[in-house]
Amino acid sequence: MKSTTHTNNLHESHFNHQNFLEISNLSKSYRNKDGDEFIVLDNVNLTIGENEFVTLVGHSGCGKSTLLKIVAGLEKVTSGLVQLDGKEIRKPGAERMMVFQHYSLLPWLTVRENIRLAVDEVLKNANRSEKISIVNEHLAMVNLTPAADKYPDEISGGMKQRVGIARALAIRPKMLLMDEPFGALDALTRGKLQRQVLDIWENNRQAVMMITHDVDEAIYMSDRIVLMTNGPAATIGEILEVPFSHPRDRGAMRNSKEYYELRNYALNFLEENFSSGD
């Protein structure tokens, strides 16, 4: 299947998509127990700038998480090439940090200790004072200083996710990868955490690739939205530019004509690409 990546002409952007992350002719397939090939991703091509926030949107089974894991180095490509800052990605690395939907915190460590563990593991050349400063800085960044000495079972789901985000950012990665980071949260907490993550990113910009099923979330947070076709043999169907500058005002966006044009375009694409077998 040939990639059919397009840009919606209604949403042309001035954003410079420099090739910080470059995915070229990527395909991923598996062999089933009978030896037959099952193609998950087919001929995926995408570049992301070093300060760009990109979301992947598509139905379940379209290979979004597989693509994210390939960028993280947790999965290998069958063919094609993935490069970050000019270097081929072949395995996990501290320059790429992953935030999952489920918090993955160590329950016997406090909030502070969960973050410090990552700092100790990656920033080995930093001295004790520097490590304490980094942990405190990132606790404050996600508004968790008052909860620093609490254990995971003593804090809410939204707070746990903030710990995961702080832990990922504390080791100073070049790229943040997020797999439905707000998916397990209630609507009110989800909205608040979206704003907090966007505040952090707007003040400390880096490359972000995030998976979401929520078109409104994608429009609110990202510079571009990558719409995936259905699997198997999924690929990029369209790439939509989000025409709103940062920082963003959610209320003002939702009252704009451009917001509803973009939202309807994305939803129509997803509806057209829906299949009951997904």
Rank of each mutant, 00 (worst) to 15 (best):
F182P: 11
M221N: 09
R112V: 00
N45V: 12
T229Y: 02
N136M: 11
M1N: 04
G58V: 11
V122A: 06
T47F: 01
G73M: 08
M159P: 09
K91S: 15
S245N: 09
A170T: 01
D179H: 08
Y103E: 04
P173K: 06
D120I: 04
T47Q: 13
G157S: 12
S156H: 11
Y220S: 05
K33C: 00
G231V: 05
A118C: 09
V54A: 03
E137M: 12
R254C: 05
I236T: 03
M221G: 03
D278Q: 08
E88I: 14
L117M: 14
L26G: 01
H246N: 01
D249R: 03
Q101R: 10
G277L: 13
I39R: 06
H246I: 01
T235D: 02
V44S: 02
P243K: 09
S27F: 07
A126G: 00
I89W: 08
V99M: 02
D85I: 03
V44N: 03
G93S: 13
K91V: 07
D120N: 15
P181N: 11
E52I: 08
R31L: 15
V119D: 08
P247G: 10
R31V: 07
W201Y: 10
E272F: 00
I48E: 00
A94L: 05
V215T: 12
M253G: 02
K192A: 13
T55E: 05
A233Q: 10
V119I: 10
E88N: 12
I165R: 09
G93L: 08
V44H: 06
R167Y: 13
E50K: 15
E113H: 05
I39P: 00
K131A: 03
E88M: 10
G277Q: 14
V135H: 12
S129A: 13
G63E: 01
I115A: 05
M175F: 04
V40R: 08
Q196A: 10
H11E: 07
N8F: 07
K2C: 04
N127K: 11
I132K: 15
R90A: 08
I39V: 15
D223Q: 04
L26V: 15
K64H: 12
I219T: 03
S79C: 12
S133I: 00
R128N: 11
L123R: 11
I132W: 04
K64M: 10
E130Y: 00
P152Y: 07
A266D: 00
A252P: 00
T212P: 04
V54Q: 05
K131N: 04
R90L: 14
V226K: 10
E272I: 01
T235C: 07
L188H: 10
Y30K: 06
K91G: 02
P173G: 04
N143K: 14
T235K: 07
T7H: 13
L105N: 09
T4L: 13
H102Y: 13
V40T: 15
S133C: 03
E137I: 04
S60T: 14
Q196D: 15
V163G: 06
G80C: 09
G73N: 08
